[in-house]
Design a protein around this nucleic acid. Structure first.
Length: 305
DNA sequence: AAGACGAAAGTGGTTGA
DNA sequence: TCAACAACTTTCGTCTT
């Protein structure tokens, strides 16, 4: 798998992927580097729904939200021992002992962590798919020993944050922080760490993704909402969005859209919902007016009133 | 009186030497 | 590892409705 190139124990790059068992094994020292992997990649493309349904793989649903997906590894059954003598036998027992210790430790950790993950996810009303993704990320993190030195909860929060971003249902760090009771900075730190270590690529979040949630929190009409999206698209074309915090831009677009549609909200109201300050909204708002020449439109609306 | 506006100083994170 | 830097926040005074 893409995540592992070298054996962490002996440094060998001579690794073997055992697809049947879902394990990566070092050919030189025999260490099981990664186990219980499942290959999620598709080697085909779907051109229409008909093909898609034919090409779907079927099987019992595998869930990362269960700490043990019914797949486990044991070192050796009785039969193997007869082939070993002396030193080899000792080594064998040692390996089995460690394998047992490691796997039970991991499983105990996962059991706890996934319960916490479920709790936070349901608090935030996150879709099932995001929860799955987060659980998957967390499981990988545990297997790579990334949790060591960090609190379990913060890694859970970080995994959830990453999963949200990947599924384009962004939650702000503040929301995650509130739901999990972990400091915002801490979540950000573990999030960055985990994604870097696991090589997870995350696209910068798109302001548009925030619009529906903010709009409904502000009780704005559907027209205003789509107006805001329209404004955002124009803003993107004018390169107003790069480098800026996505929530600030989303908030400003919403604010302007509300003005145009005579559903005015105060800057403070919008700011509170979006989790930014009025000042930031003002700055973005100013830029929007200047670049997109929306001034006339607003004035016209005001006159009509 | 409340909201909008803008200036100035402060904060936490990223980047490049 | 440190300093420069951009984005954002906080705070506060002034203007507008």
């Amino acid at each position: 798998m893409a995540y592992i190139k070298k054996c962490p124990d002996c440094g060998s790059i001579n690794l073997r992927l055992d697809k049947d068992k879902g394990e990566v094994i070092c050919r030189d020292c025999g260490l099981v580097i990664e186990e219980r992997m499942i290959d999620f990649s598709q080697e085909w493309r779907e051109f229409d729904s008909d093909q898609a349904s034919k090409q779907k793989r079927v099987g019992a649903p595998l869930s990362y939200t269960k700490y043990d997906r019914g797949l486990g590894t044991d070192v050796g059954q009785k039969g193997d021992i007869f082939q070993l003598k002396g030193k080899g036998k000792n080594k064998f027992f040692r390996l089995r002992k460690w394998q047992y210790r490691i796997s039970t430790a991991i499983e105990r950790n996962l059991k706890l962590a996934l319960a916490e993950l479920k709790r936070v996810a349901s608090f935030l009303k996150l879709p099932r798919s995001v929860e799955e993704e987060a659980a998957r990320i967390y499981t990988l993190a545990v297997q790579r020993g990334l949790v060591r030195g960090r609190s379990m909860e913060s890694v859970v929060a970080g995994a959830l944050y990453a999963a949200c971003r990947r599924h384009e249902v962004p939650r702000t760090l503040d929301e995650l922080s509130e739901a999990s009771g972990i400091d915002k900075k801490e979540i950000g730190r573990t999030y960055r760490f985990v994604t870097r270590e696991l090589g997870i690529r995350i696209l910068p979040s798109n302001p548009v993704d925030y619009i529906p949630r903010f709009a409904s929190a502000l009780k704005l009409s559907a027209e205003t909402q789509s107006k805001a999206v329209e404004i955002l698209e124009q803003a993107e074309n004018s390169e107003l969005t790069s480098g800026r915090g996505p929530t600030g831009i989303a908030a400003a677009a919403l604010y302007v859209a509300a003005l145009i549609n005579n559903e005015k909200r105060t800057q403070r109201e919008v700011a509170d919902i979006a989790g930014v300050t009025e000042v930031t909204i003002r700055n973005r708002y100013k830029e929007l007016l200047k670049k997109l020449k929306l001034k006339e439109k607003i004035k016209k609306k005001v006159k009509e009133k």
